[in-house]
Design a protein around this nucleic acid. Structure first.
Lengths: 344, 344
DNA sequence: CTGAAAGCGCTTACAG
DNA sequence: CTGAAAGCGCTTACAG
């Protein structure tokens, strides 16, 4: 590959000038610009990104750190990634995808992380990824609130977890449901914790007795139970508390489908016998399943977009005031899976 | 951040020695090694990845280029990415995710691509991404065969598209189906082309008249029809050729679900009236839908793994003989959506 | 608007 | 096993 010296020589200018033609950081005369561009084209020259990074101290890449289970991530991640990618490209940033199993951080080849900033999805308490970033002085944004004593100035993009669960509960209570089973997110995630608190609070506000045996939290992402989450729990609850469940809130489309199958296999129907509400499901799937599922659109792609935008602020790419905490609104989508409680 | 000079000075050794302690490319005495490591820890030093890249000419990153539609990619991509990520990390490689809309290649900030190699998913004829890579002399592997006159030595990982469609057709024919509707992949993708050829061939081999009006190809990924693919086509065919369809082959879970809904809305049932076969669906979804869908597991994650492995061979990371073309086997999964043709 | 020179933080022959 | 020095391919004050 041609390098800057080759172009400079052939164009009869200095390296600095060639550099300026490409970076546009200092003006170059039209004549020189054209000459340089022409020679560059002939030589098939493009500035070496690495060499540039070394001096500018910018890699023009951000890291996207997603906790994952071997061979699996969901539509939420899917759309989130899409949002990140799309928005990052608007600022000329590339995205380095890292799906580090939580708590298993390794720095490949023992070298620094070649990114300018990072987005951390689904932070947990005592998250090694965050400690690593903090230690390496890499600015980052978390998606989902974090609790970490040692780190201040944490920037976070989030859904309004409490508002969402309150909305759902009041919607179901409004339909007459008092016996609500809750397939929550994991209890180590802040999202799970926040939802749970609010779930209990709303029920109590409405004078409804909270039934702990009808509240579940998603198994750890590394466990085998993770994928099947929803089926066994629903089956068990339907058997042990036959008339005690009239509505189920499921964490995602997967658990919602699992619950739906359990309900059907138990000889019951949605929404006639049991209302089913999915918090975060793939839109297409929610729409295509029968009955089409009523649920919340958490707008994961928007979460991705906003997290990039916040990070760009922290990197100084985006100027102006900004808030370190950004809440992405959710959309309630009413379909066919929830109905007034069956009073027979 | 501390740099190599700081460590060298404090440890009382030369930069070269510090370098060797970390790179392990030349032996260092135990005593020196320990001293360097200790000082490094104190100073929180890690080698600068960029500076290293500049001289080694290796970025230790590969690019993953996925054609995409705004805010959307499928479980196939999902699993494929997972496979790539997992396998790449085995060799200490990071993954730069690029979801360039096909035919819209842009080099961010007009600089070279900081990757050692690339994996190109779903190449089309006249694919700009491939031309760009070729021009930049970046080794790459395609997933799905390509036709490009100007480029030799193309490495490809692929499913056995023809074998798959043959298997499916003969399975359905074996169940007595002669009127098979085919919701194929896009006709600009080699996968779609290969399948189509074989579909026609197999039917003809069995003396079955091919009905062109029952063969569809997935709309372009950029069109609005892309997402709804399957519903309208099925509806239309069911209406215009009432008794002419007894089986449907769908390209993916999305189109399969669309077809399923159309079938149900037309007052027909799967598999009693129509058998439904999905070529490439998310395993969980195929399993959870009712009826559970019979289909093929294309093992996208394995495609990812093998494409990385092939790329590592091309990069010289993996030694030994290798074949420039690798076929990933598919798995037939029989569930409840296909049945012998209903002879009423 | 342009050039000459120093420097980004490493690795790598070369010499010992 | 270790060191001194050159060099990777750019950008950036500095000077004009």
């Amino acid at each position: 590959m041609a390098k800057i010296d080759d172009v400079a020589r052939l164009a009869g200018v200095s390296k600095g000038t060639v550099s300026n033609v490409f970076s546009q950081k200092r003006p170059t005369s039209k004549k020189v610009t054209e000459k340089v561009l022409q020679v560059s084209k002939e030589l098939n020259y493009v500035p070496n990104h690495i060499a540039r990074s070394l001096v500018t101290k910018k890699t023009m890449a951000i890291g996207l750190m997603i906790p994952h289970r071997k061979f699996f991530f969901s539509m939420f991640h899917n759309q989130f990634i899409n949002g990140v990618l799309l928005e990052a490209s608007n600022y000329g940033y590339r995205v380095l995808l890292d799906m580090i199993p939580t708590g298993e951080v390794k720095t490949p080849s023992l070298a620094s992380y070649p990114i300018d900033g990072a987005i951390v999805l689904g932070p947990t308490e005592e998250d090694d990824r965050i400690n690593l970033l903090h230690q390496n002085e890499i600015p980052f944004v978390t998606v989902g609130r974090i609790i970490n004593e040692g780190i201040q100035d944490v920037s976070t993009v989030n859904n309004d977890n409490k508002g969402i669960i309150r909305y759902i509960c009041e919607y179901l209570i409004g339909l007459g449901h008092h016996n609500i089973m809750f397939l929550n997110a994991g209890d180590r995630m802040t999202v799970g914790i926040e939802r749970m608190e609010e779930f209990v609070r709303v029920l109590e506000e409405h004078g409804i007795t909270v039934q702990p045996e009808m509240i579940y939290s998603k198994p750890d992402i590394h466990s085998d139970e993770y994928i099947k989450y929803g089926y066994d729990e629903t089956m068990r609850t339907l058997k042990s508390h036959p008339e005690r469940v009239t509505a189920i809130i499921a964490d995602d489309d997967r658990s919602a489908l699992s619950a739906l199958n359990a309900i059907n296999e138990a000889g019951l129907s949605v929404p006639e016998d049991i209302s089913l509400f999915v918090i975060c499901g793939d839109l297409t799937m929610m729409h295509q399943v029968r009955p089409a599922l009523t649920g919340m659109d958490l707008q994961p792609s928007e979460l991705g977009v906003q997290s990039v935008r916040l990070l760009m602020h922290k990197l100084g790419v985006l100027e102006g005031e900004y808030d370190n905490n950004w809440t992405v609104p959710s959309k309630f989508i009413e379909r066919d899976s929830c109905a007034p409680v069956n009073k027979t």
